[in-house]
């Protein structure tokens, strides 16, 4: 008992916890603040938007930014600021829904082929090769073209393509974890395969997945708004950043605020997720 306290007590006190380390990383904290604020805006847009995002006012069409309308108004007199705020719920939803299904499928498939190897693994290797042969955007829009434009079909398309990247990462990580003693110990103890995979290997292999997930959420917002801009994602009159930018595209020399302002929201949110990803990669790196 005394030995244990001696060994762990003072030493642990000297070493800062991961939480304390996180507080000292300005990049990570800035990212966390941006994403925290974005999440609040996404959950309660009605609290922060000064106007109804769909209120049409033909007497106030394409007005430049003012106190009344900080980001100006659009071609139907709708308040751009309120539309950008309401779009947070759509675009933040994209970050989650365009990634979680791909993550779940990828993690399970990757863990299984990494553990069992064999023929399934060989087939998996070819499937990965085939899917990464298509430029990501090309395959996604080809699937959207077949299913039809819209948010749900966009999520399906991104999931169909995106799971591969998680699976590839998970497979490599499980294979490297298998060489650890705890994995062999599990086998010797006679644990079931599923128990070894999901209780022991998976939790240890999750770090790179979580880091990639953050980057992927940033990519999902970029991809989702690109599809919205191209007319294949969210459909007008829904307020979505890509859609808003596309709506202002033809008036960019006379009403620049219509396209410029929603873009700032995209850049800021993308930056937030990237900063969290970079910070997590640093913080979760095994400490020696």
């Amino acid at each position: 008992m005394t030995d244990l306290t001696l060994a762990s007590g003072p030493k642990a006190a000297q070493r800062p916890s991961r939480f304390q380390m996180a507080l000292k990383k300005p990049g990570f904290m800035a990212g966390a603040a941006i994403i925290g604020a974005s999440t609040i805006l996404a959950l309660f847009p009605q609290v922060f938007a000064p106007h109804d995002p769909n209120f049409i006012d033909y007497l106030a069409v394409r007005q430049p930014p003012s106190w009344q309308h900080p980001f100006g108004t659009d071609l139907l007199g709708r308040d751009t600021f309120s539309r950008v705020i309401w779009a947070y719920s759509v675009n933040m939803q994209m970050a989650v829904l365009a990634t979680v299904f791909a993550l779940t499928i990828g993690v399970i498939v990757g863990a299984l082929v990494g553990y069992y190897r064999g023929i399934a693994d060989m087939i998996f290797g070819r499937v990965v090769d085939a899917i990464i042969t298509f430029p990501f955007l090309v395959l996604v829009i080809a699937v959207v073209a077949v299913l039809g434009p819209g948010l749900i079909n966009m999520y399906i398309a991104i999931t169909l393509v995106g799971w591969v990247y998680y699976a590839r990462l998970m497979r490599a990580e499980v294979i490297s974890q298998m060489s650890n003693d705890y994995a062999s110990a599990g086998i010797v103890m006679g644990y079931s395969d599923l128990r070894i995979i999901f209780r022991h290997l998976l939790p240890n292999a999750m770090t790179p997945i979580v880091v990639y997930w953050m980057t992927d959420m940033a990519l999902a917002i970029l991809l989702g708004s690109s599809l919205g801009y191209l007319g294949l994602g969210a459909q007008p009159p829904q307020a979505e950043w890509g859609v808003l930018i596309a709506e202002g595209r033809n008036f960019i020399t006379t009403a620049w605020w219509l396209s410029l302002m929603p873009g700032i929201a995209i850049v800021l949110t993308g930056l937030g997720f990237s900063l969290i990803g970079d910070g997590l990669a640093d913080l979760l790196r095994p400490r020696g």
Partner: peptide, 12 residues
């Protein structure tokens, strides 16, 4: 920041 900008936005 450049990495967080969608291509269509840079172009525009």
């Amino acid at each position: 920041v450049g990495l967080s900008m969608p291509v269509f936005y840079i172009g525009l």
